[in-house]
Design a protein around this nucleic acid. Structure first.
Lengths: 353, 353
DNA sequence: TTGAAAGCGGTACCAG
DNA sequence: CTGGTACCGCTTTCAA
């Protein structure tokens, strides 16, 4: 059926590494040029209806799927966003990702995530990988970051959103949560309830913004000279929280209130307390941070500070896809956590010690 | 410092769309050919040490980052795996993803996830997107799938792993969980405890493998003619579970045991029961499916069926990266869930009704 | 409306 | 050990 096709000495479409049709093959089959096929595929209006049909038929026959990489190389603009998070198993990060992804989806974008597990080295690799992919925008929602990264990133002419760890700059937005405010609220609340012996449960003490939460705790707690306190550190997650509570008790410190760096860890704290038959909140109050969806499903449900993850996710998307001139100067978006009181907190027990 | 560079009329590296250096520019700066730069970048041994240094310096000076797409187009083999899941917020899927990703990470692979939200249409789009990306392998961990997809997929000469919904074929492995077995174990266990009024809480009744769980429940439960039963369906997740329990009670059906399609929903079921002051397990027993990490952190902790997600994740990676001849025939891997008894189940209450 | 051809940024083969 | 160069698969002028 095909006319003079034998002209090149090499067998044309034979032992190619991936057994997928190419634009050329489609063009050949449809008896048009590759340009025309491209036009059809990109819904260019200037194609005769019959030609279009012919092309589409060929496409179908060959199970043709455009090569994303070739397409980009040739000049199409990326519709891929990148997001790097510290711990995707922590619902806090997951929620932000999902929110961003949902928005992206609607707008015809894709977002690829990468997980650093709080590892600086992996963060670096992830960033490079994202840049190599030539993503259209990059969100860095992590707790660990080297200053040098800022430079590398500002070099690139790419919309970047940081959460917490950044500082604004050209094309770079920073979303900052005012932990001090949040911490202050929790401590005031607990203090008012009569708590005078508090523990802070954190993770990865060496990392800065977590460090910041811890520092904030210490800072705030010092305002109340009559409050004893101690801090412990374990891995992020329920297991870590459990271990932390364990460690706390092993130290011989018996707090009346346990302030957790996030809800994810608080889950484990609650569990450990229950294991030991310690009543929450009658004997010990527990607070979290983030207000993950799970917080209200726990038993007892968790008093915590709300951080609007959905809103943040949406903002991330907007910022990453905003027209360049909107972010050229760089801005900082500030979020104030608000206290959500649930069942896990109550008045300090009467019989102290 | 550079010699005769003005030769082309167009300003060379000016208003390019992405402000990143190219191989050429590096080559120019290092005064070598692009071939040499490429060699250096790919750690080819046949490069003089001094040359290599010169190139690397240029790379650094220009903040050069290879273009992933160009690299692939030019023939490098992909180290990207694709994974499509139904609901990444459900820890079941998340765990599998994380396990696969961890293995991939070690081996120098990346894995990009996509979330369908149980939507067939989105599954199709995701698959196409993955194929367009020319991933090295594709894992489809979803509950919704059209038979037509099998064809499209088997056309491609690409390692594919299905979870549950597939059937083995050339290059296609299927991982199947024997729900019947699991369901049978739960029901036997509950029956032995004296339960005679059971409810099944599922989600998305229209989807086949979930349907299968539901069907299995019905099938199994019919073996016990003296067991009353009913099934309800809500969205996947704690909120859905809560709604389901709510619905159940609103229907006027007061089960002594609630069998949930997965742990994620069971969380909500437990919550709703607590809200209503119904004791678990004294008044109602609750079971889940999957044995997500959270299951043992709940209060009461959840009786469930274990599905080895980590192992599955690892298998997925192995299968996706195995040498082609290993999977040419296609195989099916069968997994038997095992019962994990915790606090959420107990003997049926004496005073029936 | 359609085709020819010049790249996009690399890789890899072939010479030298 | 290094350079020249033919592509990879697609988009996009520029002409016809």
């Amino acid at each position: 059926m095909d006319p003079k096709s034998s002209h090149a000495p090499t067998s044309d479409d034979d032992r190619s590494r991936s057994r997928v049709a190419t634009l050329q093959q489609v063009a050949r089959l449809a008896r048009v040029s590759t340009a025309t096929v491209s036009r059809v595929l990109n819904n260019s209006p200037r194609v005769r209806e019959e030609t279009r049909r012919r092309v589409l038929r060929a496409v179908r026959q060959l199970h043709y799927l455009p090569n994303y990489h070739a397409r980009l190389l040739a000049g199409a603009k990326t519709r891929t966003l990148g997001m790097i998070v510290s711990n995707i198993e922590n619902p806090f990060f997951l929620d932000i990702f999902c929110a961003t992804e949902a928005r992206a989806q609607q707008a015809g974008y894709e977002v690829v995530v990468e997980n650093t597990n709080y590892d600086r080295q992996r963060l670096l690799e992830s960033v490079r990988s994202m840049l190599a992919r030539r993503v259209a925008g990059l969100a860095i929602i992590v707790s660990e970051i080297d200053p040098q990264l800022f430079e590398e990133l500002s070099q690139q002419n790419l919309p970047v959103v940081f959460y917490d760890v950044g500082r604004p700059g050209p094309n770079m937005t920073n979303i900052r949560v005012r932990y001090e405010k949040g911490m202050q609220r929790v401590l005031e609340y607990l203090y008012a309830l009569g708590h005078r012996r508090m523990a802070f449960v954190g993770h990865h003490a060496s990392l800065s913004p977590l460090q910041e939460r811890r520092r904030t705790f210490l800072q705030m707690v010092r305002r109340y000279p009559d409050v004893e306190h101690v801090t412990v550190t374990q891995a992020d997650g329920p297991a870590g929280g459990r271990a932390a509570m364990n460690q706390l008790l092993a130290m011989g410190f018996r707090p009346t209130a346990v302030v957790c760096v996030n809800d994810f860890m608080a889950i484990g704290v609650l569990r450990e307390l229950r294991d030991r038959g310690i009543q929450v909140p009658e004997e010990v109050s527990v607070t979290g941070f983030d207000n993950i969806a799970l917080a209200e499903f726990l038993n007892p449900s968790l008093t915590t500070l709300n951080i609007p993850r959905r809103r943040i996710g949406h903002m991330v998307f907007e910022l990453l896809t905003a027209p360049p001139e909107h972010l050229s100067m760089g801005q900082e978006i500030v979020i104030e956590p608000e206290l959500v009181v649930r069942e896990s907190t109550g008045p300090a027990p009467q019989r102290a010690l």
